[in-house]
Amino acid sequence: MDNLGRAILLSVALTSLAHAQVIDTSASRSIWDAVYTEAQAARGEFAYEGACSYCHGYRLDGAADDPDMRSSPPLARAKFLRNWEGRSLAVLYELTRTTMPEDNPGSLSEQEFIDVIAYMLSVSNVPAGEKELRLDLESLAGIAIQQSP
């Protein structure tokens, strides 16, 4: 099974298991409601380059920086948003935190994972706002990933 397959399977499992209570399918907000800040995205870029770009590429398009590595799922822009359409940021956060980087899951701090998500939104041309994305599952569960505003 490829990475994307595993990611989708895992996210489905997450939805139906332990984190079901925080996956609010009637999320009150979407990523388009200025849910992160530019400063947070900048911090996320730093974390991303050290931990993620090797496989997901510096453009976040899934084109691995190392030619020996296989491509990975894109982490930004249209294809990323399409793959995650309808899920909440809580699912994305939990999947990322528990499975990435593949050889050492959880090796980033929880704040770094949140900052990386802010960076992914920033590269996806999702507008930033005044308040940072908070490290709070309930809050993240209320923010839906949608392909467009």
């Binding site: 590429g57 398009d61 899934g62 491509s71 894109p74």
Partner: peptide, 8 residues
């Protein structure tokens, strides 16, 4: 480099 995703 378009990655695998670029091939669509």
């Amino acid at each position: 480099n378009v990655g695998l995703a670029g091939f669509e």
